[in-house]
Design a protein around this nucleic acid. Structure first.
Length: 562
RNA sequence: GCGCCAUUAGCUCAAUUGGAUAGAGCGUUGGUCUACGGAACCAAAGGUUAGGGAUUCGAAUUCCUUAUGGCGCACCA
């Protein structure tokens, strides 16, 4: 419920605009100052009055409404204290009358493409890929929830000289039995070995280039090996996606655009954008304060930007997107600025709808930056396994009779890792530590899941409780804090989407769980009078529904017992 | 060298986007179990918001500047 606009309508003023007042209204920081406040300082110059005097005048002229129980002037603030029963009724009824679900918003018909995860073939799925995968996956769910048609795109890194190198390594040192057994880890070893050997024998690089050329030219042997690598990778990676609950609508990657770049180059030439510089074909961007965007190398072959241009045009044609997001680390900030500018110069007015959603770097605590070439990586599946087995240990210790132990341990262990990736602002660099990823106390995924399970448990035990809703029961500090948070769910999700920031939902869920747990320890349900018990139970079920829906938006399952 | 980003409690992060006494978690110390899940709750300690300047009723938030760290800057992606 949008109480700001309700209050704004009640404020009478000849000199002040409704929109001005609406913009100034803000939630209070502390409940003792009421629920909403109007700082009057900025009106002082216009009205030639002191802020407290303005607050007092507005207070006197305020139209009466049942929503507002009282108003107080404190300094230059006009504070509004709401009738808590009305707020509680609105918040609770919205969920209770919907059979304790928080339905998605209605479709608005808009399509959003989200390019995320975008793993490289024949390379490990390591913790460096966790952020793009989790952020993109969460945005995907949030867009769907908010009524958009979301298209998840895994822009596979399935082209380039590294495949030639890998073929060389495979032909020299490859062991099919080993690959069969250890699949992608065996490929990683080959890749690392190639780079160490190439330092001694630089001619290996030439061999690598030769074999990549064979792939491009359709050499059967080369293609067979390449496809074998691709199959192994996709099979392995899809296991991880399954565990994370991630899905894609398209796996069109780099190789997919190989035959779609010529029209781009033609159009660039047509528009007179392409110039030759140091033998390469570039789009000069000096006017815009950027280095040139390289389109073709001097040998005439294409580059990253070329493929991205082709992909963007293809996506616009195929999906007619309202927005196209690229969830890619901030290292590539400049690349996206250049690439979007080139799209714009090509005359595509939808270039403004392309958005880079950057995030911070992941390094290894104690071991520095991740490097596939050096083999300095931590496999995501290993991290998930550790988290799951720790979770299983805790379950065996605390709840040994639990059914579905394995699945629950998956939910909780994976949840801990994923929440860790989605709990902070995107842009912060992360120094990955297994200890931190395996923390289950405090502001963590398992804490949210625990709180949800607690709700389920009470609801189960209080099944027989019936009575009438008495909203006055929800007006004490602890219960009302929960009520206000329930009311903030949809605005929080919409705001998170607006900022492409899943962590806003994560923070919100932590706030809700903390408020709920505080309420929980202080307010009994079983054993209270019928109406009190029933009303509190209803609040519990509303929290349960909100936690479950919110957890789902940040990719966490919400087991009923754990 | 040029550009972009970051810097808030010992550590990891918030702060409704310019509002009231800057809040949480971890860790530390001390409490709460004969009520529904202790993966919990309560309390204490911990701050010149990296330093300096400016803007204004008001700045962690905007601008300038310095410092530290990260990233990027031509044929990798």
């Amino acid at each position: 419920m949008d109480y700001k606009s309700v209050v704004a309508k009640l404020i009478k003023s000849d000199e002040l605009d409704k929109s001005e007042i609406l913009a100034a209204l803000a939630p209070t920081q502390d409940a003792k100052n009421g629920d909403l406040c109007l700082p009057c300082f900025k009106f002082a110059a216009k009205l030639h009055m002191a802020p407290p005097a303005i607050a007092n005048k507005l207070k006197e002229d305020l139209l009466p409404d049942p929503l507002i129980e009282k108003t107080e002037v404190a300094g230059g603030y006009l504070n509004f204290y709401f009738n808590r029963e009305i707020i509680a009724k609105n918040a609770i009824d919205a969920i209770a009358n919907n059979n304790f679900t928080l339905p998605p918003l209605e479709s608005n018909g808009k399509t959003v493409c989200i390019d995320y995860s975008s793993i490289n073939i024949a390379k490990p799925f390591h913790i460096g890929h966790l952020l793009t995968t989790a952020i993109g996956g969460s945005l995907y769910r949030m867009y769907k929830y908010c009524g958009y048609n979301a298209v998840g795109i895994n822009h596979l890194g399935d082209w380039g000289t590294q495949f030639g190198k890998l073929i060389v390594a495979y032909k020299k040192w490859g062991d099919d039995g080993d690959i069969e057994k250890r699949n992608i880890r065996a490929l990683l070893d080959l890749y690392v070995r190639f780079h160490t050997e190439a330092e001694k024998n630089p001619e290996l690089e030439d061999e690598g280039r030769y074999w990549f050329k064979q792939i491009e030219d359709g050499n059967e042997e080369a293609l067979a090996i390449f496809h074998k690598f691709k199959d192994i990778t996709l099979k392995e990676v899809s296991k991880v996606y399954d565990r994370l609950g991630i899905t894609f609508d398209s796996y069109a990657g780099e190789s997919f655009y190989n035959d779609k770049m010529q029209p781009i180059i033609d159009r660039l030439k047509e528009k007179g954008l392409l110039t030759i510089s140091e033998g390469a074909s570039v789009v000069d961007l000096e006017k815009y304060g950027m280095p040139p965007c390289l389109i073709l190398k001097k040998d005439g072959t294409s580059l990253y930007a070329t493929r991205d241009l082709a992909a963007a045009v293809y996506r616009k044609k195929t999906y007619d997107f309202y927005k196209c997001l690229y969830v890619v680390a901030y290292q590539q900030n400049l690349h996206f600025k250049q690439f979007f500018k080139v799209l714009e110069l090509m005359g595509y007015d939808w270039a403004k709808d392309c958005v880079h959603v950057p995030f911070g770097m992941v390094s290894l605590e104690g071991a520095g930056s991740l490097s596939t070439r050096k083999g300095n990586v931590v496999f995501l599946s290993d991290v998930l396994d550790s988290a799951v087995s720790k979770s299983l240990e805790i379950i065996n210790e605390k709840n040994p009779d639990l059914e579905n132990k394995e699945q629950t341990a998956q939910d909780v262990g994976v949840g801990a890792v994923v929440f860790g990736a989605l709990s902070g602002g995107r842009i912060k660099d992360i120094s990955f530590s297994l200890d931190k990823a395996l923390s289950f106390d405090g502001e963590t995924g398992p804490y949210l899941q625990y709180t949800h399970a607690r709700c389920c448990s009470i609801a189960e035990k209080a099944k027989g409780v019936t009575g009438k809703l008495d909203y006055s029961v929800l007006c004490d500090e602890d219960a009302f804090a929960v009520v206000k948070l329930l009311d903030a769910f949809y605005p929080t999700v919409l705001n998170a989407l607006d900022k492409y920031e899943p962590s806003m939902v994560s923070r919100y869920l932590i706030d809700l769980a903390q408020a709920f747990n505080k309420f929980y320890v202080g307010s009994r349900i079983l054993g209270e009078a019928d109406d009190v018990a029933y009303t509190r139970l209803t609040l519990v079920k509303a929290v349960e529904a909100t936690l479950k829906t919110g957890l789902n938006l940040i990719l966490l399952n919400a087991p009923e017992k754990m």
